[in-house]
Lab assay of single mutants.
Amino acid sequence: MVYKIRDKETGKVYEVTIDEETNEITVYDVKTGKPVKTVNMTIEELKEAGYEVEPV
């Protein structure tokens, strides 16, 4: 599923895909559409880390 996340401190917005089964999150560069990095976190962990998470 695709989400937009926003860093509450910097205001930067990222587009991510989240595999609900493995909790693998792939972060994409919004301008190029290319993957930047992959992390292993849940949506709740993202929120605790200071991100706003919205489904696209």
Rank of each mutant, 00 (worst) to 15 (best):
T38V: 11
G11C: 06
I5E: 00
L46P: 00
K12P: 00
K31N: 13
E45S: 08
P55I: 11
E52F: 07
D7N: 13
D19A: 05
T42K: 06
Y28C: 06
D7R: 02
E52V: 07
I5W: 04
D19G: 03
N40A: 11
V27K: 01
V39P: 04
Y51C: 08
K8G: 04
T42I: 01
K31T: 13
T32Y: 04
L46V: 07
V39I: 14
G33E: 03
Y28E: 00
T38M: 09
E24G: 05
I18D: 00
G50L: 04
K34E: 10
E44L: 09
E9T: 14
N23F: 07
E20T: 14
E54H: 08
T38C: 13
V27W: 15
V39S: 04
E24I: 14
V16P: 00
E52W: 07
K12Y: 10
I25C: 07
E24H: 10
V36F: 11
E24L: 14
K47A: 10
D29P: 01
I5H: 00
V2S: 12
K12V: 12
K47I: 12
K31E: 15
E15A: 12
P35K: 13
M1S: 08
N40I: 14
V13C: 10
V56C: 11
E48S: 12
I43D: 01
G11T: 01
V36D: 03
T22G: 06
E20F: 14
L46Q: 00
G50Q: 03
E9F: 14
T17P: 00
Y3N: 01
E21H: 11
G50E: 02
T32H: 03
K4Q: 10
K4M: 13
K12T: 12
T10P: 00
E20P: 14
V13P: 01
K8F: 05
E45T: 06
E52Q: 06
V53H: 02
V56Y: 10
N23T: 06
E48C: 10
Y51T: 01
T26W: 07
Y28P: 00
N40V: 14
V13E: 11
K34Y: 11
Y51N: 02
E52K: 04
G33S: 05
P55Y: 09
T17D: 03
K47F: 11
K34L: 13
L46Y: 04
A49F: 10
T26E: 02
K31A: 14
E21R: 12
V27H: 04
T17K: 09
E52T: 07
I43C: 08
G50F: 05
N40K: 14
V16R: 00
M1V: 12
N23M: 08
E15C: 15
E44Q: 11
V2T: 11
V56S: 09
V2G: 09
V53S: 02
V36G: 04
T32I: 03
E44C: 09
T10F: 02
K34G: 04
V16D: 00
I18F: 15
N40C: 13
E54D: 07
E21G: 09
E24T: 15
I43G: 01
V30P: 14
M41R: 05
E21P: 04
I43K: 04
I25F: 04
V2I: 14
V53M: 07
T10C: 08
M1D: 07
K47P: 02
D19Y: 06
D19Q: 06
V30E: 13
E48P: 01
K8Q: 06
V53I: 11
T42F: 02
V56L: 12
K34F: 11
T26H: 08
D19H: 08
G50K: 04
I5R: 00
K12N: 10
V36R: 04
Y3I: 06
I18P: 00
I18M: 07
G33L: 06
T17H: 13
E20S: 12
V30K: 09
N23Q: 09
K47L: 14
T10Q: 01
G33D: 03
R6I: 13
T26R: 08
I18E: 02
N23L: 07
G50Y: 06
G33N: 06
V27T: 03
T32M: 04
V56R: 06
T22W: 05
T22Y: 06
K47N: 06
V27P: 00
K12C: 15
V30C: 14
V39C: 15
Y28H: 06
K37N: 07
G33R: 07
E45F: 06
D19N: 15
G50V: 03
V30L: 09
P55E: 10
K34N: 10
V2M: 13
I5Q: 00
V36I: 14
E45C: 08
T17C: 09
G11R: 03
R6L: 08
E44M: 10
K8D: 02
D29C: 07
K34W: 10
P35R: 11
I18N: 01
D7A: 04
K4S: 05
A49S: 11
I18T: 04
E45Q: 13
M1E: 07
E20Y: 13
V36E: 05
I25K: 01
Y3M: 11
E9A: 14
G33C: 12
E20W: 14
A49K: 10
N40W: 14
K31C: 15
E15D: 12
Y14R: 00
Y14S: 01
E44V: 09
E44R: 10
K37S: 08
E48G: 10
V16N: 00
M41H: 04
T38R: 13
T26N: 04
G50P: 01
N23P: 02
L46R: 00
I5D: 00
I43H: 02
K4V: 13
V2D: 08
V30H: 13
V56T: 09
P35G: 04
N23S: 08
M1F: 13
M1Q: 12
T10W: 01
G11A: 02
K34M: 12
Y14Q: 01
E20Q: 12
Y14I: 03
E9S: 13
E48Y: 09
V27N: 01
T22I: 07
V39Q: 04
L46N: 00
Y51L: 03
K47Y: 10
M1Y: 12
T38K: 12
V2K: 15
V16I: 15
K4H: 12
N40Q: 13
D7C: 15
P55G: 09
T17S: 08
Y28M: 08
E15H: 15
D7G: 01
E45W: 06
P35F: 14
E15M: 15
E24C: 13
E24Q: 14
V36S: 05
P55T: 09
V13H: 05
T10E: 01
T32W: 05
E54V: 10
V39H: 05
M41I: 09
K8V: 08
L46E: 00
M1G: 10
E45A: 10
M1K: 15
K12W: 09
N23D: 07
Y28K: 05
G11N: 06
Y3R: 04
T38E: 04
T22C: 10
M41D: 01
T10R: 02
G33F: 05
V16S: 01
E52A: 06
R6M: 08
E21T: 11
G50R: 05
I25H: 01
D7Y: 06
I43A: 03
T22N: 13
A49H: 11
V53G: 02
V27E: 02
I25S: 02
V2H: 15
P55N: 09
K31H: 14
V53A: 04
K8N: 05
V16T: 01
T38F: 11
N40M: 13
E45R: 07
P35C: 10
N23K: 10
E48L: 13
E21N: 12
G11Y: 02
T17G: 04
K8E: 02
V27I: 15
G11D: 03
T38A: 05
I25M: 12
V27Q: 03
T32S: 09
I25E: 00
V16M: 14
E45L: 06
Y51E: 01
T17L: 09
T32K: 02
V16Q: 00
T26V: 10
M1H: 10
E15S: 13
K37D: 04
D7L: 03
K47T: 08
E54L: 14
K37Y: 15
